[in-house]
Design a binder for these strands. Structure first.
Lengths: 354, 354
DNA sequence: AGACAGAATGACAACGTTTTCATAACGGCC
DNA sequence: GGCCGTTATGAAAACGTTGTCATTCTGTCT
C-alpha cells in the first residue's frame, strides 16, 4: 500500500506515480491510465505523514479558543473552515478552558512542526509575566493572527482581525444615552482581555461625553461568565441609585443580566434596558429579543485565516489590525427609561440567590 | 536546528541525542547534561513531522461535528480534550455544517494517515446511499466511535457512547403525563438522525402507554434548527386541539418553542409546558428556566475518547454502545395544565411571523 | 592484571514521499 | 534515415527521526 507497490503493479517508476498524483499533466495519458488503474486496484492512498514530512509542512493551523460550544465562535469558525477547505488546511483545536498554557507553548508547536500557524481566538492567560521578552522573539517569527483580539495587553502588537471594539461600545452606549438613559451600568468581561478593556473604554468615552459625566462606579466585572454576570447584575441593581440600563460586554452576560433583572421582578426593557455584544444565535429569540452589537463573524474568520496563511507563506503581514465593520442591531430589550424612576426594591426574587 | 547539529555540538552521535529525548535513563548523566546544554544553546525542537512519519502515527484524532458553537458539545469536547491531553493526542476538527462529506471521506483520512481515528459527534448525511457496502468495509477497519449517536441508520453498528435516548425521552414524556397533560406535542430533530428517532420513539412509547393512546399528529419536525422549531411550534399551536405541553428533542429547539409560545401571548408554563433535552449552559437562565434531560456530557466525551484510543491501539472494542446515565432536571417550564383549557387564539403575535 | 558482563554509545538502515538531474523515447524536419 | 528539440520517464538523493545491531567503554570480579 505504498507508492512502490503501485509503481511495480503499473510497471513504472515511483517518480512517475508521484507525478501522476501531483502534476498529472506532465505524464502521458496512457501511463496515467495505467497508474490510475493500479491505484484503484491496490486501493492506494498517499501517506500524508510522508508527504508532509518531505514537504516540511503540516497543513495544520492551530486554533486556540476558550471553549468549543460558545455560540459566538460559530461564525468565526465557519469562516476559518471555509478558507481552510479552500486552501487545503486542517484545523487543530486547542481549548484553554481547562488548562492554560502560555502562548509560548503554542509557538513551540509551530517550531516543532506540529502546526504551520496559529489563530488565537481567546486566551485568558496567554503569556507569563516572566517570559515576555522570550515570547516576543518567538512570536515574531511565528505565523500568528488574533481573531477578535480577545487577548491580553502583551499581545497587543500581534496582527489581528476584529471590529473596533472601543467605537462599537461607545456607539452602543450613545444609543442608550439618546434613549434618555443617564444611569447606565457596564458589565465587563474578564480582566486581562484587551477586547473587554476596549469595550469598557468605549463605554467610558460615551459616558464622559454625556452631560452627566463619567460614573466609574457603574463598571462591574462580569468575568466573562454567566455566574459572574449574574453577580454583577445583582451588584448594579442594589446600588443606591440603580442604573436604568445595563450594557454587557457580550450576549451571554446580557442573557444572565436579563435573567437577574427579571428575578428581581423588574421588566426588560420597561424598568431596565439591556444591551449585549455579539449577536449570537440566541439573541433574537431571547425574551425580550436582545439589542446588541453584531460583528461580521464569518468575515472575521475568513480574513483571519487568509492573513495567517499569508504569513505562513512568508509574506510580511505587518502588525496593524484589520478592522471590520460592526453594527448595532436594535431589538426589544431597550426602551426609553420610564418617566417615574424605577423602584428596584419593589420585586422579590422568585428563587434563591445562588 | 536538526538533531544532527545538536549531536555535533554536543560531540555525540544523533542516536544518543535521540535517546536523551526518548529514554533519558539509558544515557549517562554526563552526556545527558552535555546534550541538554547543546539543545538549549541551539534552541532545538524535535521535528514532530519526522517523528510521526517514522513512527507511523499522526497523534491526531479527527472530531466531526456539525458546528463549533453549539452549546451542547461544550461538555463533550471538554471530556475529549481532557483525555487527549492526558494521552498526548491532538484534536482535528471538521465541521459538517457547510459541506457534507461522507463518512468514507473521513475514513480515507485515516487511511492516508491524516489522523489515527475518528470521533463522530454529528453528521447530517454521513453516508451516501450508493456506497454503503464499501463504507462498511472501510469503517470496520477504521478506529471510529460515535459520541451521542447523533447519526443515521446505516451507522447504527458502529461503537458509540451515549445515553439511552429512547428511555430518556419516554421518561420525560411520562413526567408530563403525570403532571396531568394529555395533549403533548413533540418537536423532533432532523430526519436522518438515529438519536432523534430514538427520542421520538421514546415519546411514542410513553404516549402509547398512557390512557389516551398515541397521537401521531403531534409529532412535528423541528429540523434541529431554531427556525424549524419555531415553525413546528406554530404548527402545534394552531392545531384545533392544541397541546398543553411540548417536548422538544433538544434545548435549542425548546428555546425557540418557548419564544413562539410567548409570541402568541401564551405563558410558559401556565398555558403551555415545555421540556427540552441536553441541559445546555443556557437552560437554567432561560425564562422560565427549562425543565430538561441532562446528559453527562463530559463523561460521554471522556469515554468516547478512551474507547477510540483503545481501538487505535488495536484492541477490539466491540460494537455494543456504552450507555451512560441521563436524568430529568425539573425547573420552571413545566406545570400541571390549567383547569380551564388554554385558549390558544387569545394572544396576538407581537412581531411579524418570519 | 586480565577477563567479562553490562552499560553506554555509534553507525546505518529504514520510513514513503518529492524533487532534481540525467537519460530515454518521441516526433518533426532536413 | 539521421539529427535535434521536446517530452516523458527513471535513478537516486534527501527530508529528520527512530530503532536495530554492533561496537566501545566502564567497572567488577577472579
Amino acid at each position: 500500500m505504498s507508492i512502490k507497490q503501485v509503481a511495480k503493479l503499473a510497471g513504472v517508476s515511483i517518480s512517475t506515480v508521484s507525478r501522476c498524483l501531483n502534476s498529472p499533466d506532465q505524464v502521458k495519458p496512457k501511463t496515467l491510465a495505467a497508474v490510475q488503474s493500479a491505484i484503484d486496484e491496490t486501493g492506494y492512498a498517499p501517506n500524508a505523514l510522508a508527504r508532509n514530512f518531505r514537504r516540511g509542512k503540516t497543513g495544520l493551523v492551530l486554533v486556540v479558543l476558550q471553549s468549543v460550544g460558545l455560540p459566538f465562535w460559530e461564525g468565526v469558525m465557519r469562516g476559518i473552515n471555509g478558507v481552510a477547505r479552500e486552501t487545503g488546511y486542517s484545523i487543530l483545536i486547542r481549548e484553554t478552558a481547562s488548562s492554560q498554557p502560555e502562548l509560548d507553548d503554542y509557538c513551540k508547536m509551530v517550531m516543532s512542526k506540529e502546526a504551520d500557524g496559529i489563530i488565537v481566538l481567546a486566551s485568558p492567560s496567554p503569556i507569563s509575566s516572566t517570559s515576555s521578552s522570550h515570547y516576543s522573539n518567538q512570536a515574531r517569527r511565528t505565523p500568528i493572527v488574533l481573531g477578535c483580539e480577545n487577548v491580553t495587553d502583551e499581545m497587543a502588537h500581534i496582527p489581528s482581525v476584529r471590529v473596533d471594539n472601543r467605537r462599537a461600545a461607545s456607539e452602543a452606549t450613545q444609543y442608550l444615552l439618546q434613549l434618555g438613559h443617564q444611569r447606565i451600568g457596564f458589565i465587563a468581561g474578564s480582566r486581562g482581555s484587551l477586547l473587554t478593556r476596549d469595550r469598557e473604554r468605549g463605554y467610558r468615552d460615551a459616558m464622559k461625553a454625556s452631560p452627566r459625566g463619567e460614573h466609574s462606579g457603574w463598571v462591574v466585572n462580569g468575568d466573562q461568565t454567566i455566574e459572574g454576570a449574574r453577580r454583577a447584575t445583582r451588584q448594579l441593581l442594589s446600588l443606591p441609585e440603580a442604573p436604568t440600563a445595563i450594557f454587557c460586554a457580550n450576549d451571554e452576560m446580557a442573557m444572565a443580566a436579563i435573567f437577574e433583572v427579571k428575578r428581581r421582578g423588574l421588566r426588560v426593557p420597561d424598568d431596565i434596558s439591556v444591551v449585549g455584544f455579539d449577536d449570537t444565535r440566541y439573541a433574537a429569540i431571547m425574551d425580550p429579543p436582545l439589542t446588541t452589537v453584531v460583528q461580521p463573524t464569518e468575515e472575521i474568520g475568513e480574513r483571519t485565516m487568509r492573513r495567517l496563511i499569508s504569513a505562513i507563506e512568508g509574506h510580511d503581514i505587518g502588525e496593524a489590525p484589520e478592522i471590520v465593520e460592526h453594527r448595532l442591531i436594535v431589538r426589544d430589550s431597550t426602551a426609553p427609561p420610564r418617566a417615574g424612576e424605577p423602584d428596584n426594591r419593589r420585586g422579590q426574587p422568585t428563587e434563591q440567590t445562588v
